[in-house]
């Protein structure tokens, strides 16, 4: 068997854009400076698809998002790139108040197929506004799907799934994974949204983590190898959330640590904890631990590495539930 080619995560995302735009004329991208490219995921696309489909806008997130919103109603399938995911907040009202809830309120007649994307994450020490992960803010609202890949394989498959999905999907990606390399098949394929993935099998504790934190989880599992057997589950999607895969793992481990690069309160970590207590209380042998950003704006500077979830904090939590 020939070896599967390796690509960095950003290139995997770009391949998804390219293949889907080749497949379907109605797919187009809109964003700021995407023709020149801020991150490598859009570089070179304008040469192939032209400015009708790689649409640069003025520095105006509302207008930029409006292009996607209205065009989706007219049968297009936009991908709207906010550059840094946090900038979506400048278009939060049409996204959260209208787009997500529109279909339902108007009798489930319309669909709004679109992908909302942007990069984010701690690691560059830029401070809250550039680093902040927005998945929980969006996932709170029913009617929009939210996901984040951890590997190049998932990045391509989930982006293709997001583009083909008839619902609005927020696909965020973590800057700390941008250049991570991994196997990516050349042909188009789909990684279904709303399905978690057991990325590493283990028997003592279930560790849920994704994006950059998936890598930190791997570091901790390596550190503890021979001592504590860690099962790593990548939720991949935050909404819908695949709780069954987590419950199934807990049947084996009875212990749960959830890493979420977001605030401690009202996060995906909290949601998983609540659902597990609801449906799997009897499976638990220890309290659930959440490894998150404490309830403070993420500072930049030298504080970011220890305020954001990190291997030491994850290891401490794993040891704590395995005592």
């Amino acid at each position: 068997m020939s070896e599967v080619r390796e690509l960095p995560l950003v290139e995997a995302i770009k391949e998804a854009y390219r293949q889907e735009m080749e497949r379907d004329e109605s797919v187009f991208m809109v964003g700021q400076d995407i023709a020149g490219g801020i991150f490598p995921h859009t570089k070179g696309l304008v040469e192939q698809f032209g400015t009708d489909r790689i649409v640069d806008t003025p520095l105006a997130e509302l207008g930029m998002y409006g292009t996607a919103f209205g065009a989706a109603m007219e049968g297009f399938r936009p991908i709207v790139d906010f550059m840094f995911a946090g900038f979506f907040l400048n278009a939060a009202s049409p996204i959260l108040a209208q787009t997500a809830q529109f279909r339902f309120i108007h009798g489930s007649q319309m669909s709004l197929p679109m992908v909302i994307t942007g990069a984010c994450g701690a690691g560059m020490r830029l401070g809250n506004e550039h680093a902040m992960l927005v998945h929980n803010m969006i996932a709170q609202v029913p009617g929009i799907k939210v996901c984040m890949p951890s590997t190049p394989y998932d990045a391509k498959g989930m982006m293709i799934a997001a583009i083909r999905d008839d619902n609005p999907v927020a696909f965020i990606w973590h800057l700390g994974t941008m250049m991570d390399r991994g196997p990516v098949p050349e042909e188009p394929y789909v990684v279904p949204l709303g399905v978690a993935d057991v990325k590493r099998e283990g028997s003592d504790v279930t560790l849920v983590a994704n994006g950059f934190q998936y890598k930190n989880a791997g570091i901790v599992a390596d550190r503890l190898a021979g001592e504590i057997s860690v099962e790593i589950i990548d939720p991949r999607s935050f909404s819908p959330l695949d709780i069954d895969t987590i419950l199934k793992s807990l049947e084996k481990t009875g212990r749960l640590v959830v890493v979420d690069e977001s605030w401690e309160s009202r996060s995906t970590a909290s949601e998983i904890a609540a659902q597990v207590v609801d449906r799997g209380f009897d499976l638990l042998d220890a309290p659930i631990r959440r490894v998150t950003i404490p309830n403070m704006p993420l500072p930049g500077g030298h504080m970011e590495p220890y305020v954001a979830p990190n291997p030491d904090a994850i290891e401490a939590a794993v040891r704590d539930v395995c005592r």
């Binding site: 401070g127 506004e129 500072p299 930049g300 500077g301 030298h302 504080m303």
Partner: peptide
């Protein structure tokens, strides 16, 4: 000694 205690990075 940063003007925001070193929290703000470039903000």
């Amino acid at each position: 000694d940063g003007c925001c205690g070193g929290r703000s990075s470039f903000h």
